[in-house]
């Protein structure tokens, strides 16, 4: 669809509360058929809105004396025959003690307080997650399924017979996507994300997830007494060729009855099919996971993720 995309982005990096990088980026892309004419023209109104959004982030970034913060505010306007819409996003990646979360101004205080309490143990002994059920807490199952279901859907992977109680939807909050189409929710178990997104004015819009909501209806709710509890993932990857998901877990505990042991970071590497077969239980409503910065073809975008507490049986 022919459309015009305007964007202004401000981002900055703070180390120990001191700004070390600041960037302003602006541009416009006019798409006609398969041709896109892009330039770094700056829209004054978007620049003003973006500046106001960034001004909210900066003092929060300065308030972290014990870590590194990257803050990004972006305002974009898309115009097409479907209408015109402005959309503002703001996110902060906070790293303390080598562990990162992605947060927003409204969740910043709670997320940073939690992050300060989860420094990994000094032990570097490798963790073998195989043979242990995993309880995915704090919405972290959304990251696993973002990879195993969301990215697979983006790549038109073969559909799998996921548990009948599982629900995975992409629900954008904007009305018009970055390619001028009317946005709509998509059932990621059956179809790719319906919305197109782009990171900058120089990029091609591609089908991407925006807000992944994992939910359940009538799932088994049993919690194994002996399990690994995952709270935070540091990064994930899905390879469409091998259909293997790789997830780096940065905060987890091994729980065995009353014994609870903090685990160093470890990597889960499993096929999509094995993940499907392991999904065993879910309980409670979807809770917000503290953010995913997702990269496809070099375009990094924040994807909101929510999931209930979920259980996978022994992987591997």
């Amino acid at each position: 669809m022919d459309h015009t995309f305007n964007i202004v982005t401000r981002d900055g990096v703070w180390r120990a509360g001191i700004a070390i990088e600041k960037r302003l980026s602006s541009g416009r892309a006019r798409q006609s058929g398969r041709s896109i004419a892009a330039s770094d023209a700056c829209d004054a109104k978007l620049d003003e809105t973006c500046g106001a959004a960034f001004d909210v982030l900066a003092p929060l970034a300065e308030s972290v004396p014990d870590g590194r913060v990257r803050a990004v505010a972006a305002v974009r306007r898309v115009s097409s025959s479907n209408g015109e819409e402005e959309w503002t996003s703001a996110a902060m990646t906070v790293t303390i003690g080598g562990i990162s979360i992605v947060t927003t101004p409204e969740h910043f205080s709670d997320d940073v307080t939690w992050l300060r309490g989860v420094a990994p143990p000094a032990s570097a002994a490798p963790v073998d997650y195989r043979g242990w059920p995993i309880v995915w807490n704090r919405g972290s199952a959304s990251v696993l399924l973002h990879e195993a279901i969301g990215h697979a859907a983006e790549e038109d992977a073969q559909r799998l017979a996921w548990p009948s109680w599982l629900r995975v939807r992409d629900e954008p909050l904007f009305r018009i996507d970055d390619a001028g189409n009317v946005a709509r929710a998509a059932n990621l178990l059956d179809e790719p994300p319906a919305s197109y997104r782009r990171a900058t004015f120089r990029d091609v819009p591609i089908r991407r997830m925006t807000r992944v909501i994992v939910d359940h209806a009538g799932a088994p709710a049993s919690l194994p007494e002996r399990h690994i509890e995952v709270n935070l993932a540091g990064g994930g990857h899905y390879d469409p060729l091998s259909e293997v998901v790789m997830l780096t877990v940065t905060n987890a505990h091994r729980v065995n009855g009353s014994r609870r042991e903090s685990l160093p970071p470890f990597v889960i590497r499993e096929s999509r099919e094995r993940i499907r077969a392991s999904l065993g239980a879910a309980a409670g409503p979807p809770v917000r996971y503290p953010g995913v910065v997702c990269s496809t073809d070099g375009q990094k975008l924040v994807v909101d993720c929510l999931a209930p507490r979920m259980v996978t049986s022994e992987l591997g």
């Binding site: 892309a29 398969r34 041709s35 892009a38 770094d40 120089r202 091609v204 073809d297």
Partner: peptide
């Protein structure tokens, strides 16, 4: 040329 789209981009910074 990417994903069958042809993008021309001008910028100065």
């Amino acid at each position: 040329l990417e994903r069958d789209s042809l993008i021309s981009a001008d910028e100065a910074g």
